[in-house]
């Protein structure tokens, strides 16, 4: 799966294309805050469930969604596993490994499960945003909300360079495979060669890009999206829209449940 193309494809052709970026960002980020704040597993599961089903309903293929989820999961699971051994006093499972006595604790397990749910809920919020909204529009909206230019510009450059790096990596890797890299004995050596050549190449790329930007008098300003479209600015007079009302209702319910904490 080519994440760049698939992801970008979803962002421009999903059911929420016509909903304003600000609304989507508000929905995603406000719900994320609730997920960080709440202690209730029920609420976290509710967020995870709604967010991922909305995202999938908008047009993302389940297979791709799960594949994308696997990336953060592969970081999450090991750390949560370790956590289960570190906290608490009531052992659930004990065994010895290489002469060490290890005990899985109930408290640690519970904490791990909560953490896991919280992270997944948060990730589903962010997935909703990146799978339904083009990065250019997110950055544009960030600018509108007076987020400092340097932050917006940096995020943009990072985004752009991710793809440059992926491309460089793929072509270098193909070249290595063609010359019998990554065979049994030389896997690590091949990887180290890949990394070092990527460093050199990306520095070169960065320098070329800098020269090209300089040649066009770049002074830290990224053009906003309004230059391409002619009608949009006039049609966006309404502040209140059905989607916004829905979002506010949903988030208000979540907030009340989170504050009450009774569920």
């Amino acid at each position: 799966m080519h994440f760049d193309h698939t992801l970008e494809g979803y962002t421009v052709s999903n059911k929420f294309v016509n909903i304003r970026t600000g609304e989507k960002m508000f929905f995603s980020i406000f719900t994320l805050f609730i997920a960080v704040y709440t202690q209730s597993p029920f609420l976290l599961l509710l967020i995870l469930f709604t967010m991922s089903s909305i995202t999938i309903w908008s047009g993302v293929r389940i297979k791709h969604y799960v594949e994308m989820l696997m990336i953060p999961l592969s970081f999450l699971l090991p750390s949560i596993f370790v956590l289960a051994f570190l906290r608490g006093s009531e052992p659930v499972l004990t065994f010895s490994l290489l002469g060490m006595h290890l005990a899985m604790m109930r408290e640690g397990l519970e904490l791990g499960a909560l953490l896991m749910m919280r992270s997944m809920a948060g990730i589903s919020c962010l997935f909703f945003l990146i799978m339904t909204t083009p990065i250019a529009e997110i950055l544009d909206t960030m600018k509108k909300f007076r987020i400092p230019g340097i932050v917006v510009e940096l995020s943009f450059m990072v985004y752009k360079l991710i793809f440059v790096l992926i491309e460089e990596m793929e072509s270098t890797k193909i070249a290595q495979y063609a010359r019998l890299g990554y065979l049994r004995g030389n896997r690590i050596k091949s990887l180290s060669l890949l990394l070092s050549s990527m460093l050199v190449r990306s520095l070169e790329k960065a320098q070329n890009m800098e020269m090209a930007l300089e040649a066009r008098c770049y002074a830290g300003k990224m053009p906003s999206l309004k230059f391409g479209r002619e009608t949009e600015s006039e049609s966006k007079v309404h502040v209140i829209s059905p989607s916004l009302i829905l979002i506010i209702l949903f988030d208000a319910c979540l907030l009340v449940m989170a504050v009450e904490g009774g569920v």
Partner: peptide, 17 residues
């Protein structure tokens, strides 16, 4: 040379700056 994600945005880069 092309840095902006969308074509018109990139063409606008010079003039905007």
């Amino acid at each position: 040379q092309i840095v902006a994600p969308i074509v018109f945005q990139d063409v606008a880069l010079g003039p905007v700056n």
